[in-house]
């Protein structure tokens, strides 16, 4: 449990004169459920964008399992083992549910297939397609989406779209999963269900999970450690209970 998976060092980015994220130091251990909370505009999603290579940090760097990933492209970072979901759902809307997951499986080494092999439909193509489909079904089963696999992603209800996005991210076989408000727009029953799924995938896939969430019940029920951000800087860090009861944090959320 003590192995550090993600480590950020003085991570920061400024847009012009605005320091959107400044000096963020986070250490996440293996199989940990780590929360990133803060008021709107605190820079939580920006941290995610930094960690996935959407933005390049202006200061500091971050390491995954000791390997420096700063400066790599989104694709490279994904190959190294960081996958994410989006705050505003970004599914492949015009593709079926299973195909969304299949796109996630695209880069797995066991499903490597040269484009020219597919172009000529050599036996390898069929073998890979079949194996990918089986794997995708297994992943969908965890999220209870197997029966809907042939529906278009855009026709799913909101809660299931969120789950599908996690399933798709999981298909890329990440070591670290970044969930951006996974419970947003879900009813209490769905939230409960999601918490169980998150715990389950962490154990089954040996995952480390960093999540952004506004639902404090969700955060305190799931995460053992959190970081509270406000105006791009770290306000409090540590055990969930302690950090949430920090007077500074309460002040930032509900004022004095």
């Amino acid at each position: 449990m003590s192995e550090v998976v993600l480590k950020t060092e003085n991570l920061g980015i400024s847009f012009g004169g605005l320091k959107a994220v400044d000096n963020v130091n986070i250490e996440i251990k293996r199989k940990q459920l780590y929360g990133l909370v803060g008021p709107n505009g605190a820079g939580k999603t920006t941290v995610f964008n930094l960690l996935t290579g959407v933005y390049q940090p202006t200061t500091g760097c971050f390491y995954l399992n000791g390997e420096k990933l700063t400066g790599k492209t989104q694709e490279q970072i994904n190959h190294k083992g960081i996958a994410r979901t989006f705050q505003n759902i970004r599914l492949f809307n015009n593709m079926s549910v299973i195909r969304n997951v299949l796109v996630g499986l695209h880069n797995q080494p066991e499903f490597k297939c040269n484009p020219f092999v597919s172009l000529l439909r050599l036996p390898r193509h069929f073998k890979v397609e079949k194996a990918m489909r089986e794997r995708a079904k297994e992943i969908l089963r965890i999220f209870d989406l197997e029966d809907e696999r042939n529906n278009l992603a855009c026709n799913l209800p909101y809660g299931k779209q969120r789950k599908l996005e996690i399933a798709r991210a999981l298909a890329t076989n990440p070591k670290l999963l970044l969930l951006d408000e996974p419970a947003a727009g879900m009813n209490p029953h769905e939230t409960e269900d999601l918490m169980n799924i998150i715990r389950r995938i962490r154990d089954e896939f040996d995952l480390t999970i960093l999540l952004i969430e506004h639902d404090m019940k969700f955060v305190s029920g799931l995460c053992d450690e959190i970081t509270v951000l406000n105006f791009g800087t770290v306000l409090a860090q540590g055990k969930t209970e302690d950090a949430l009861n920090d007077p500074e944090v309460i002040k930032a959320y509900i004022g004095e």
Binding site: N78, N93, V103, H106, N107, A169, A171
Partner: peptide, 19 residues
């Protein structure tokens, strides 16, 4: 082909999926 249609559907997500 799936990767190609994924890029058409949502380029940002396709990149995040390592395509």
């Amino acid at each position: 082909g799936r990767a190609i249609t994924a890029i058409r559907d949502n380029e940002i997500a396709a990149k995040a999926m390592g395509i």
